[in-house]
Design a protein around this nucleic acid. Sequence first.
DNA 1: ATGAAAGATTAATCAAAGGTTAAAGCCTAG
DNA 2: CTAGGCTTTAACCTTTGATTAATCTTTCAT
Lengths: 230, 230
Amino acid sequence: MAKYRLLLVEDDTSLGYVLTEYLKMKNFSVLWVKNGKDALTVLLEQPFDLCIFDIMMPDMDGFQLAENINQKNITIPFLFLTARSLKIDLLKGFSLGAIDYIRKPIDEEELVVRLNSLLSILKKTDQKEEELYKIGKYSFSPSNYELKIYDEKRHLTARESELLLYLLKNKNNISRHSDILNTLWGKNDYFNRKSLNVFITHLRKYLSKDDSIKIDNIHNQGFILITSSE
Amino acid sequence: MAKYRLLLVEDDTSLGYVLTEYLKMKNFSVLWVKNGKDALTVLLEQPFDLCIFDIMMPDMDGFQLAENINQKNITIPFLFLTARSLKIDLLKGFSLGAIDYIRKPIDEEELVVRLNSLLSILKKTDQKEEELYKIGKYSFSPSNYELKIYDEKRHLTARESELLLYLLKNKNNISRHSDILNTLWGKNDYFNRKSLNVFITHLRKYLSKDDSIKIDNIHNQGFILITSSE
DNA sequence: ATGAAAGATTAATCAAAGGTTAAAGCCTAG
DNA sequence: CTAGGCTTTAACCTTTGATTAATCTTTCAT
């Protein structure tokens, strides 16, 4: 089983250290940062499966961090792990989109089973791959990497296929640069972005035989596969 | 939003009644049964989105119920809601496939947000809950930066979109210069104010196809998006 | 009424982002 | 170990859009 990648945001040095080591021992890949600002930076650059936020931290607290994530349209599951046990805080946490709110002091073993439970739910809902997609006059089979129009077939490469699938899953909605890159490339930097452009060019060429289909760029935001038909 | 269907398995009559009524008030559809046997029967007959199991019950306890479910390959998400607070019980609960383990006494409000959170993760597939604003004859999707009237679509830039969203949130109320500038630009000076004017001009042009919409200036105060319709 | 400040509009500017093509690396099967 | 296909990097060109500027028009206090 692939390691799950966790981002731990915790300003308390000793707790942060203990948790990081424990979770690593339990076969998680953990990045520990000590404040919300650093968290935002790495979230834009690297993919994670789940984030764990402390609330009370200097500079940017956990709530502010969650607000920032929502505002920036970063799609990442997160939960709060906090000493703040008041109900009002819990309600606020969930209303910000947290998938859990765990009160300190936490038993490490309990934390691990809760993390695994949440991660397995998240994974289950993410995996749903259909057999055949219709794109205007084209049809696309992600499992064979095959793009067909009329009788013409074209075999896409793995990357081309993944990218097209990603765009299709968000058909007529923005697929954000950062989300694409984090999902397909695993990181988001200058070179990946360039690479992404190259593959977008490929897909546009392959799909050029049906004018009702286009891949638009939304400046500084992402790409959007538009099918005007249907 | 469609009602979620819950199955509550709880032998305590007064708690069962209170919970059922409370959850119904919170727009859940609830079936309450008092033992594991009845639970199994209705699970085979009716669909549910989520089940809530007490543990300590006569005849068949919650753990046995969960074991039965696994053995019969019934795929249904369930969680435990129990007075048994020992870690060993929690670990057993998760190992049986529970998606949460909530210790009594439970605050009803907290229970509801936890249920909603879990259900929204589970239903992530049809979680296409993109917000859409109506502005007279226009509709605006902030996540796609898309402004639509009839069949015409226009993609706004990030700034245009943010500004329109800000005005919409204060629809028919004044959006102050200083508030807009501080929120979107992060500072408020001569040049930003000039920039803001330019974007207001853009939005006015984009929205000019419906006379019932206008963006008025309140001298020295701010702007106000007015929709006379509705 | 009048002048200064504020607002509206259009256009110019320029750095950043995107597009395209080709060459360079990198795997992997044979 | 090498040939061929795929991905990444590079080079170069085009487009985009926030800002600034320039020029009118409106508002408001006096």
